[in-house]
């Protein structure tokens, strides 16, 4: 090993506007998070196995026992699993961020002339990519086990849009969770406490009609149910009601609140 230092200051940074740097920093750190999808075996396995497991288990374990009215259980189920998977998938952002904090990556990036919160943007955008891939696998498996959607091309575009919007919103919440939890272990507990109730106490897997009234009241009015119902309506033609509007309000509202909160927590760190 023979280190011969370059003269100090012999390499100079480029000159660009602050906005150009913000975009550049975000892109560099997004590339970083995207590369993790392929090199981190945990992420890659989760991305591929999770949709197959969920789809097959729910379809065949609950499928025979749950009455879903006008549509088949498979048709009912796909929207629920898509959203549940997006919520659990967002925990990757929490875990990655907690790991970055634990391993000193956040500190290092904060010591650079970088817009350091771009680190979070990178994780969130990687979440979107991961989730689109997982969802594609899920829908492919669903078709194999009897999923017969009524959605046309326009509906599918809306479905994609809603999925991206929901994932984006929940990933920023997940970023906040990662910043508060600070360790990978704590993220797992927080995920258990927040994501489980939000996704299971909803219309994701069973119609809410059979739930005790308190639970039903929560399940029918909480944001995740609105997103699921909106998606289900687009997919298989169940009644839309005000679900799309409520879903949009909740998701956009979450983004408007969560992004500055995450940025604040990150800076304060």
């Amino acid at each position: 090993m023979a280190y011969t230092p370059k003269p100090i200051g012999s390499i100079q940074p480029q000159k660009r506007s602050a906005l150009a740097w913000a975009l550049s920093d975000s892109w560099v750190l997004t590339q970083r998070s995207l590369r993790h999808i392929l090199t981190n075996k945990d992420q890659l396995l989760g991305l591929a196995i999770q949709p197959i497991m969920f789809m097959l288990l729910f379809r065949y374990v609950f499928g025979g026992a749950i009455e879903t009215g006008s549509t088949t259980y498979v048709n009912f189920l796909v929207a629920g699993i898509l959203i549940q998977m997006a919520a659990f998938g967002a925990l990757t952002t929490s875990i990655s961020l907690a790991a970055d904090l634990q391993r000193g990556i956040v500190e290092r990036i904060k010591s650079l002339p970088t817009i350091s919160s771009a680190l979070m943007t990178g994780h969130v955008i990687a979440d979107l990519a991961r989730n689109v891939l997982s969802s594609a696998i899920l829908i492919a498996v669903a078709f194999l086990v009897g999923f017969r959607p009524t959605a046309g091309p326009i509906e599918w575009l809306y479905i994609l849009g809603l999925l991206l919007l929901f994932t984006f919103a929940i990933s920023w919440l997940a970023a906040i969770m990662g910043l508060l939890a600070r360790t990978v272990e704590a993220v797992q507990w927080m995920g258990f406490f927040f994501v489980f109730p939000l996704t299971f106490a909803s219309s994701a897997f069973v119609p809410t009609e059979g739930m005790p009234w308190g639970l039903r009241l929560f399940a029918e009015n909480q944001p995740v149910t609105h997103v699921i119902e909106a998606m289900r309506a687009l997919m298989v033609g169940t009644p839309m009601g005000n679900h799309a509007l409520m879903a949009a309000i909740w998701c956009i509202g979450t983004v408007i609140v969560a992004v500055p909160v995450a940025a604040y927590l990150f800076r304060k760190g």
């Binding site: 940074p13 920093d25 560099v28 750190l29 970083r32 993790h36 090199t39 391993r103 000193g104 970088t114």
Partner: peptide, 23 residues
């Protein structure tokens, strides 16, 4: 603690640092 990215290669780690230093 070595604050490097476990899931990037050595080269990718250094190139990323360069970009984040705005080279």
């Amino acid at each position: 603690y070595a604050a490097i990215d476990d899931y990037l290669t050595g080269r990718q780690n250094l190139e990323m640092m360069g970009r984040l230093y705005h080279l």
